[in-house]
Design a protein around this nucleic acid. Structure first.
Length: 808
DNA sequence: AGCACGCCGACT
DNA sequence: GTCGGCGTGCTC
């Protein structure tokens, strides 16, 4: 390997001014080891500060005039960022206007982000009252005292006097889990001999020796040995001391799932119908020819998209390649991950937010080492360090969870396209209700459209009955359940079939309002209404986490008629239980699934028939496949329709279509009942007609008239500051600058104060840019972003969100 | 980010 | 006179 004397390092200081490589000297002892993509510790800035960084280049001449500093340490034996990922991170930083360092960390498991610890070291003896700060020690963890102003100022004084020193410790958090393994070191005869010498009442020793005889020549995990012998770990340690066995620590991966698969039958490929075969053939051809075609697989719910995915992945594996399957959020769709594991068993690695940091790190290493060839995961799995990718699949490609909400604001679909191109592999986007963006690209021929118009069980899609809630409420008073829905539920109970009920919570909050004076309880930091949480008896802000007790009296007029509005799943469940006393109802929402693994538990309970009705929020709409479910009810179809969001209709269409698809998936006939106050709304009508194409056409017209995507691209600029005036001024200045240099059909909206103007004690102003083609725009925005640091008042922050999901 | 430098008000 | 407040600039 080449010898490197200089290294270019991206340091872990996420600011604009430091968003570039710094050159360091490589100490001689590291010259032969250092490689691009390794993590290093380097001194940075004045004082004793040291930070983690990534080597992004070697031996590029430095045009820096001062004395170069030396790299303190290498954190890795092999690079954690390979060449593909290095290029990808650079592209991502440019594309999303974010820091290179943030992109690098985004691609890696959290454990590889070192945490730095500030410590205070004693250098000279102190007066007793100062020594008290340190106690018996001569080093102090700064984080323990940093909130105590008096101590901090005393330490600073001592520092100036040269009596103490501030230092940094960078700690790698990456921990490999090890387990103990034992190995007999004597022969069978020797063990026999030892046994004959033991006293008759030394039962433990005799048991041990008998056992050791039986495993001569093997290595056994100590946990396993303990299980078979019922001896304690102390017994084995004694055995080691006596020289009967040797013990070593071996590396072991943490096991993210339970040991065994639930359904071994799912191992075999299923028979494909003609549509599926046709779709699969196109994808296979693309894999074989190393073409990075983008396919859009549109298949109605229950049309067998997953089986096409599985067989396409199997084909890639047969070619000695790897496969990546992305799903919106695994905890919401555990069934698909389960199917992939059933098909490909130990070749599968799973990456999602439900894993502990350690499990995630282990899965990442299995992929990186090539031990797993199939990856299933949510948004960030698009960065899985697979080599030689044969196919990338994105299920439910229209899902908003594929777009990251904070920096780097990437969309997995775009990253997936980049990687597919890099590996000359096809990208397969699947959905029953594709995003308008993707569908219009497919119609334009940029993507290849594949369609699965029929359900595999040859059943028609379930009929959807729309219930107008207006007369219903007039007749019976306020209720979440119409007569029609109750009757249908009752029928299912009699027939021992199951039902799913969805309460649409999107754009819906259970806030508190005083009926006397109209006062609404809001967050003191964010100016948005607080949501009531009955489980903790608090009012909570969804944006900043602020929490306060539920008021008994109105804080404004002190009246007692302060009541909450809106229905939560909890209230709906209670009402339903009163109406159908014999029904076994399972509630599923954020409150009942907060604890790890609760999701799976609830679904398992429902799947095994231990409940008649599953009542939940949007989380039950996707991907669930229960054969005994024949009724789906939507309690309030319209709450998402009137949000100030240009995608509100698209999301509602998607949600209602998806949840309808949960009914009648096996050989029983399904039925859907949708309750609404807007029975004539086109979204609801077209969901009823199962007519995606017509919805697409209607919605496209609206988008065209209003110049929204997919006709126009959008970019959102958000400026913030503690002082509202400063934030506003910055955004007006930026608008001016933009106005001078944009293409003629580019539109600038704003600046406007954000709907939620004050968030975490900062004021936000935003500009939305709509454009069709503007070659200058990207570099102009990059420039504005770079200048923002010095041009505006200190504390001003600018963030750019390309293709935002929300304008709120 | 975080650290040092540097220039103005309230203390021994 | 100095101690320490925070505004400013830079980090290989």
């Amino acid at each position: 390997m080449a010898v490197a004397e200089l290294a270019q390092v991206i340091v872990d200081v996420p600011t604009l001014q430091t968003n570039r490589p710094y050159t360091y000297q490589v100490p001689p002892k590291l010259e032969h080891q250092i490689q691009v993509g390794m993590r290093v510790i380097v001194p940075f800035g004045k004082g004793k500060r040291s930070v983690q960084g990534f080597v992004v280049g070697l031996d590029q001449p430095a045009d820096f005039q001062g004395t170069l500093k030396q790299i303190t340490a290498l954190m890795d034996l092999v690079p954690v960022v390979n060449s593909e990922m290095m290029q990808l991170s650079h592209w991502l930083a440019d594309k999303t206007y974010s820091f290179w360092i943030s992109c690098l960390y985004t691609m890696l498991p959290n454990m590889l982000k070192a945490k730095s610890k500030r410590i205070v070291k004693l250098v000279q003896p102190l007066a007793p009252e100062d020594q008290a700060i340190f106690g018996q020690q001569n080093v102090l963890d700064y984080s323990l005292v940093q909130n105590q102003a008096s101590i901090v100022s005393r330490l600073l004084t001592l520092k100036r006097a040269g009596k103490v020193q501030f230092e940094y410790q960078v700690q790698d958090r990456a921990r490999v889990k090890t387990v103990a393994q034992i190995q007999p070191v004597l022969t069978v005869d020797e063990y026999k001999q030892l046994r004959s010498k033991t006293r008759a009442n030394a039962t433990a020793q005799r048991k041990m020796l008998d056992y050791l005889q039986s495993i001569v020549g093997q290595q056994v995990l100590i946990s396993q040995a303990q299980k078979t012998t019922h001896l304690s770990s102390a017994n084995f340690r004694q055995a080691e001391d006596k020289g009967w066995i040797s013990m070593q620590q071996i590396e072991q991966y943490r096991q993210p799932f339970g040991a065994e698969l639930t359904d071994p039958a799912a191992k075999d490929p299923l028979y494909l119908n003609l549509d599926q075969q046709r779709a699969l053939a196109s994808v296979k051809q693309s894999i074989d020819n190393r073409q990075s075609t983008v396919f859009l697989l549109q298949g109605v719910t229950g049309s067998g998209k997953t089986e096409v995915y599985l067989q396409a992945m199997a084909h890639a594996l047969q070619q000695g390649k790897t496969a990546l399957l992305m799903v919106p959020e695994i905890s919401l769709t555990p069934q698909i991950a389960e199917r992939v594991r059933a098909r490909f068993s130990s070749q599968v690695a799973v990456l999602h937010s439900g894993l502990s940091a350690g499990e995630r790190y282990d899965e990442w290493r299995r992929i990186e080492r090539g031990e797993a060839q199939v990856v299933v995961g949510a948004r960030s799995a698009v960065f899985a360090p697979l080599k030689n990718i044969g196919i990338i699949i994105m299920d439910e490609e229209h899902e908003t969870s594929y777009k990251q909400d904070d920096a780097p604001r990437y969309h997995s679909r775009e990253v997936a396209k980049w990687r597919a191109k890099y590996h000359h592999a096809p990208l397969l986007l699947g959905s029953a209700t594709p995003s308008l963006e993707s569908y219009s690209r497919a119609l334009a021929g940029n993507y290849q459209l594949l369609q699965l118009p029929h359900r595999v069980n040859k059943r028609p899609l379930p009929p959807i009955k729309i219930v107008d809630m207006r007369p219903e409420v007039q007749r019976r008073g306020e209720s979440n359940f119409s007569t029609a829905l109750l009757t249908a539920l009752q029928e299912r109970l009699t027939k021992h079939e199951q039902s799913i009920l969805m309460l649409n919570r999107r754009g819906f909050s259970s806030f508190i309002m005083c009926r006397d004076c109209g006062f609404v309880l809001k967050c003191p930091n964010c100016d948005i209404s607080l949501t009531m949480h009955l489980d903790t008896h608090t009012m909570r802000c969804h944006y900043c986490g602020h929490e306060e007790p539920i008021p008994q009296r109105c804080p404004q007029c002190h009246g007692r008629h302060i009541r909450y509005y809106g229905t939560g799943t909890e209230k709906a469940t209670k009402e339903l239980q009163a109406l159908l006393p014999t029904a076994r109802i399972l509630r599923m929402d954020v409150d009942t699934t907060r604890r790890k693994g609760m999701h799976e538990k609830l679904l398992q309970k429902f799947g095994s028939g231990q409940a008649d009705i599953l009542l939940g929020t949007q989380m039950i709409a996707k991907g669930l496949d229960f054969p005994n479910v024949t009724l789906v009810g939507v309690l309030n179809a319209d709450t998402g329709l009137d949000l100030p969001d240009f995608r509100a209709s698209e999301r509602s269409f998607d949600l209602l279509s998806q949840v309808s698809g949960r009914a009648g998936r096996a050989d029983k006939k399904g039925q859907v009942i949708v309750q609404t106050f807007n029975p004539d709304n086109y979204v609801i009508r077209l969901v009823q007609a199962h007519d995606y194409r017509k919805f697409f056409n209607t919605e496209m017209q609206i988008r065209q008239l209003a110049s929204y995507p997919p006709y126009y691209y959008t970019i959102r600029l958000m400026g913030s500051h503690e002082d509202e005036q400063v934030a506003a001024k910055m955004m007006y200045d930026i608008r001016q600058e933009l106005g001078k240099q944009l293409a003629s059909d580019t539109m600038i909206l704003g600046p406007t104060p954000r709907a939620i103007a004050r968030l975490k004690k900062r004021y936000y102003y935003q500009i939305v840019i709509k454009y069709r083609q503007d070659p200058q725009l990207h570099s102009l925005l990059t420039k504005i972003m770079q200048e923002a640091q010095n041009k505006y008042q200190r504390g001003a922050e600018l963030a750019i969100d390309p293709d935002p999901q929300y304008f709120l």
